[in-house]
Amino acid sequence: MRMRAFLCLVLVSSALSALMPEGNARASVRMIMGLLGICMIAAFLRETLLNFL
């Protein structure tokens, strides 16, 4: 579920970067999306590890 959310985030980020013009706004959006993505991946890894332990 978390990975699907991550997938949606990646796709939204790609769509935004494809549609938005070059500039600070686009870079900021990408940065925010990237940080969210990192948080999601970290949560997924934590959850997977906890499943094993």
């Binding site: 990646v10 796709l11 991946i41 997977t48």
Partner: peptide, 30 residues
């Protein structure tokens, strides 16, 4: 381990493959 763990990782991998192929984000290392 296999049903709950390995399949979760495999589904995550499929999602990452999809995202990597469609988007322009660098997801190769992940």
């Amino acid at each position: 381990y296999f049903q709950k763990g390995a399949f979760r990782i495999l589904e995550a991998l499929a999602c990452l493959c999809l995202a990597g192929a469609v988007s322009d984000l660098p997801l190769g290392k992940l």
